[in-house]
Write a protein that binds this DNA or RNA. Structure first.
Length: 338
DNA sequence: ACCTGTCAAGTCTGG
DNA sequence: CCAGACTTGACAGGT
């Protein structure tokens, strides 16, 4: 099984390369020339897109092909005060340059809209905001000209004191979205509410692929053992990706399942992400699923971002030297012998 | 140069 | 019913 690794949004290796520079609404509203203020927002967004390209070039240089785009590329993009603003056209060239680079290098990119995107909400205004946020992310993907394999990964949402009821509401509300929107979503198990079992149920019912976060599972396992996860649930998670390939008319195993990996910050703070990702527990997990699929893409969620990825690859090289059944293929991928 | 409080957005808990 | 925690990178305003 080939595993490709990726990192999230920013680089600690590059200097002054934030893809998430912003302007608060407070300072936006203090500017009295609105046209100039909007141009300032577009200029910040332009810098963010430019830095995103720098980060992706840096990733590609290191053979890293998996990358999560920042959700903060365009400041105030979905703010009420900026309704009618069309930053996608204003930044069309920068967006298509990014998309072209992704395609040329065969990279896999995604978004992860923030926790304000909650499709299980009982509040209509929150649902509307969530849909607006999703729409924004989709418009960016479309501005990059990227195909429907490029997704927005979200969580099921809140439980509101009634998890089954909320899961049902999620499914109904998701069902009312347009096909275009549905096809741009993946669902991930979260660290305190919807566990793997429940998220998988939502993913199967709504017909979207599921992203498995092994750290979230470790802190919110719903009583599901590692055996059940790897032998019972993982095959079903795999099926959600195979189904997606079928829907999009792709060749089998051309769209690898996606997992998230991170290590707990400490014994007392198991939920937070540590600076780096420990190689050995991750390798143990990968070995357990290695017989079931030929490829997996693994997003690292570590405080040290790309530095953590580089370090993890060093650790894999050391494990390879000790004959641990792992082969480092290049700077961003390994092969696991089951 | 560095520090601290604040920031568009949601949900949950505890008082 | 409301304040504060949660979580995160970056701004804003201070020294």
């Amino acid at each position: 099984m080939i595993v490709r690794f990726g990192f999230v949004a920013m680089s600690l290796e590059l200097e002054n390369a934030s893809p998430s520079k912003t302007m608060t609404y407070k300072s936006f509203s203090k500017l009295d020339d609105r046209e100039a203020a909007v141009r300032r927002l577009e200029s910040i967004a332009g810098e963010n897109l430019h830095n995103t390209l720098r980060i992706m070039k840096h990733a590609a240089f290191h053979d890293i092909r998996v990358y999560r785009l920042s959700s903060k590329l365009i400041p105030l993009a979905t703010h009420d005060a900026l309704a009618g603003w069309d930053p996608y056209s204003a930044l069309a060239d920068s967006f298509s340059e990014l998309g072209d680079f992704v395609q040329k290098k065969g990279m896999r990119v995604s978004f992860h809209p923030d926790h304000f995107c909650v499709l299980s909400t009982p509040r209509p205004e929150v649902l509307a905001g969530s849909i607006r946020d999703l729409e924004h992310h989709i418009r960016m993907i479309e501005a990059m000209g990227l195909p429907e394999t490029v997704k927005n990964n979200i969580h099921v949402g809140g439980a509101y004191g009634d998890k089954p009821g909320s899961l049902k509401r999620f499914i109904e509300q998701f069902g009312s979205l347009s096909e275009r929107m549905k096809r741009r979503v993946t669902l991930e198990n979260d660290d305190k509410t919807f566990n793997v079992q429940e998220t998988l149920e939502a993913a199967e019912t709504t017909g979207v692929p599921m992203v498995l976060d092994i750290h979230h599972h470790a802190v919110n396992d719903g009583g599901i053992s590692m055996d059940e996860l790897c032998l019972g649930l993982w095959p079903r998670i795999l099926r959600t990706w195979r189904e997606e390939e079928r829907l999009l008319g792709l060749q089998e195993e051309s769209l690898p399942p996606k997992i998230h990996a991170s290590s707990p910050k400490g014994e007392t703070d198991r939920r937070s992400h540590a600076d780096n990702v420990e190689a050995e527990p991750l390798l143990d997990f990968l070995r357990r699923i290695a017989g079931q699929t030929s490829r997996v893409d693994c997003m690292l969620e570590a405080k040290h971002k790309d530095s953590a990825l580089l370090k993890l690859m060093e650790d894999f090289r050391a494990l390879e030297a000790r004959g641990e059944g792992v082969k480092v293929i290049d700077g961003g991928s390994i092969e696991i012998k089951p």
